[in-house]
Amino acid sequence: MRLKDKVVLITGGYTGIGKAIAKRCVQEGAKVVVNGLEEEIGLALVKELGADTAAHITTDITEEVAPQLLVEKAISKFGKLNAVVNNAAYIASSNITSTEVPFIKRMLAVNSIAPLMIIQAALPHLSAVRGCVLNIGSINAWGGEPDLLAYSMSKGALMTMTRNLGDSLFRENGVRVNQINPGWVLTEKEILNKKEQGMKADWYKDIPDIFAPAQRIFTPEEIAAACLYWLSDECGPVSSQVMDLEQFPMIGRNLPKNWEGSHKKK
């Protein structure tokens, strides 16, 4: 078992990628503390995973007391903390015209500031066991789309934080900090969001080649599988690294032959 006896804190762990990570961690021998915003969903997940291997805490991670509460939950329930997965995210559209101050403050609070504060609160315990942090970013961190301006900025900030802390914390505290940047993932919320935007119920079965050469997008379970390496001792001394989980290169991509023509017609 790759995570035997480890205790992992996962924010945004009630649904989607976070839930998949929690389930995979338990399968690999870990105990988990999951966080989210809907109490009933958290209770159901703990029941599914088993009360002896999972605990939950329903709280908004941007609340000032939240980081300490999350860490204390892990320590009081399981006696230690080996890893933090900063997975919780606020995803919403905005561009140069529509981005307003309250909106971008909330975006940065959830996606950039809260993860930093959680690492800060967890650091003494992670240092004691030479633990690790895994930040869940996005390929949009590299620039993003025109209508994901604020979100892309927040994930770019998270990526810079990973690079910075991955160096300083490993040197000073023995704590590894790494990040994965998933591409388009088929979560429950993504299915619902696209339906609300007017797309057909099974939109994910007909993804254009430009977005998915594999004719499909990622599943949460595939992202969770990739997380195991970074959370396990197999990762060794690797720190301060960012890995993109995408179907195509971010630079030097070979666009379909008919893409340019169809683009000009629009």
Rank of each mutant, 00 (worst) to 15 (best):
E172N: 11
D206R: 15
P249D: 05
V185Y: 02
V177K: 01
I217F: 01
G183L: 04
S232W: 09
E222C: 14
T160F: 01
A214W: 10
A212F: 13
K195F: 10
A224M: 12
R216Y: 14
A214D: 09
S239G: 04
F211V: 12
E196C: 06
I180N: 02
I217D: 05
Q241F: 04
Y151H: 08
N164G: 00
D209L: 15
K194F: 12
K155V: 07
G166N: 00
N164I: 02
M250E: 04
M199V: 12
I251A: 08
T160L: 09
D209V: 15
G252D: 12
T162C: 05
F170P: 01
K195T: 07
S240E: 00
M159E: 14
L245Y: 10
E246M: 14
A225F: 13
L245M: 14
V177G: 01
G156V: 03
M159W: 00
K205R: 14
Q215M: 15
N173R: 13
V238P: 00
D206F: 15
Q197D: 14
V185A: 11
V185F: 07
F170E: 00
N181T: 05
T187V: 03
L186V: 06
A214S: 12
N254G: 02
F248N: 03
F170G: 00
Q179E: 14
P182A: 05
L231S: 06
N254R: 08
R253H: 11
S152C: 06
K155L: 07
G174N: 05
L165K: 00
N193I: 09
M159I: 01
E246R: 09
T162N: 06
N181I: 01
R253M: 14
A225H: 10
F170I: 00
Q215P: 07
G166Q: 00
L169K: 02
L186W: 04
R176Q: 05
D233G: 12
I180H: 04
Y229Q: 10
P256L: 11
T219N: 08
L158T: 04
L186S: 14
A225I: 02
N193H: 08
W203Q: 13
Q247A: 11
P213H: 09
D202L: 15
P213Y: 11
R163M: 09
S152M: 02
A150H: 04
A157C: 06
P220G: 14
A226Q: 10
P213R: 10
A150D: 07
I191L: 12
K205E: 11
S154H: 09
G156K: 01
P256N: 09
P208T: 12
